[in-house]
Design a protein around this nucleic acid. Sequence first.
RNA 1: GCCCCCAUCGUCUAGGGGACCAGGACAUGACCCUUUCAAGGUCAAGACCGGAGUUCGAAUCUCCGUGGGGGCACCA
Length: 502
Amino acid sequence: MTEYIQPARVRFAPSPTGFLHIGGARTALYDYLLAHQTGGAFVLRIEDTDQKRYQESAEQDIKDALTWMGIQPDEGPDQGGPYAPYRQSQRIDIYREQAERLIENGQAYYCFCTPERLEKVRKEQQKNNQTPHYDGTCRNLDSEESARRAAAGEPHVIRFKAPREGQTTAVDALRGEITVDNSTLDDMILIKSSGLAVYHLAAMVDDHLMGITHVFRGSEWLPTFPIHVLIYRALGWEEPIWVHLSVLLKPDGKGKMSKRDTELAREQGFPIFMKDMEELGYIPEAVINWIALMGWSYDDKTEFFTLEDLVEKFSVEKLNPSPAAINFSKLDHFNGLHIRQLAVEDFASRIKPWFEKADLHPEDEMLIQVAAALQNRTPKLTEVVDMGGFFFRDQVKLEVERVVTPKMSAVQAAEAAGRILDLFQGLDEINQENAEGPLRELASGMGLKAGQIFGLLREALTGQKVSPPIFDIIPILGRKTVTQRLENARDLLRIEADKSSG
RNA sequence: GCCCCCAUCGUCUAGGGGACCAGGACAUGACCCUUUCAAGGUCAAGACCGGAGUUCGAAUCUCCGUGGGGGCACCA
């Protein structure tokens, strides 16, 4: 655990443009971990300054996802807090004020260039193999004149006056110093002609005003990192600790997840959006463990972590700056691990909805027993109905072709079913202790292998080829059901036997 | 085209000059356990991108190359 002198105030600042995906969830997780580890605050801030890309449902999806993961913000649009409002669209005046401060200091300026002209300039630069940059037309306009034009209502944006000479050094917690030549910097737009601020200004202003101590963000911000540092400095503020997280790559490691890949993954049953996790049978404990380990590690052997473990053990220093390919099979592994770790009652309550969705309605007492039988063979919740649905169905149907094989005729199978029935009826209690031996004897007596008898029994009781162990199943089903299913199986096999002999 | 970042098994990673003929996990293969499927156990295979330096000594430091990724909007 890292020693932080001050409680960290960390913010998760998504823009509501779509569903929360793995990458965003991971950033939020790290935010939460550091905040909780230091007794600080986890702040949710909605960065909705882009009216074009805004999606009404997105904010709710993000909140739902955080709730599902069990990482609730301490401050945010819903919980409020000392720095409200937490939605950037409600903080327009604040950005404007800061931008004007920058203009007064000569660190920003009004720009009256039209988007059309800008586009033309950009095309031209690209044609000449130059880096597209603002050409500086309005950079040196007379300030009083500019102010007058702006005040008169002439359409304008506000641009940052980036230095043209020298170098700028910014410090990232994972990469150390990053130095760029100022000549490569652009005069970024701070305030759009609509009056709304752009990320470059809004995020900096909010981070400072909200007392943010650590900024976790994606590495796609690295190229504009020096600009952000310059804006902080121009405003006269002390910088937070910057932490640029590595990007998440496609499973094959070639490129980051695109929209197309996302759809493809979804088709193949791979979850990219947090909203899909539950539906695909993953539990939050596993997802959190899995996500935490993409870009962070604890030591050379420990990999199983609960949220509490992570709060205790997380540290910025152990974050890995290199890009990581998403490994879905590891998610499955963690899911199984965490499922097995659950208390049976807990597991039972989580699988209940799945049975109900399949129109199966287990009673709680029986559900617990079923849960116990299913728990260590359930990699994903989606599979519990396939594996354990037979417990709750009125009847099951033995698959004749799986029982009657070249090695066991229908006649033999029918006879075996009858004998198992007889055997069970002679037993006070059908359990492994007093039934397994006789069953094996029965098999050898008929010239069959034990596996054939157990296979037949399994088919008769479950209608499935695979199931939990037979002697785990029998007490749950109860003698009556066991007898019935066995009788049905025997009858079915007799019909089959008649067919083949006739 | 320009700028920035990254670089250990197929994948996620440990490693921060000698403890490394490089450790763990997933996936893969084999075996054990076994009434099926899992789980579990054992074992196997599998990597320091290349080249120069620095150093008595480099996976670890520096530089160059290469490869990969990201960015270059009145989007975040």
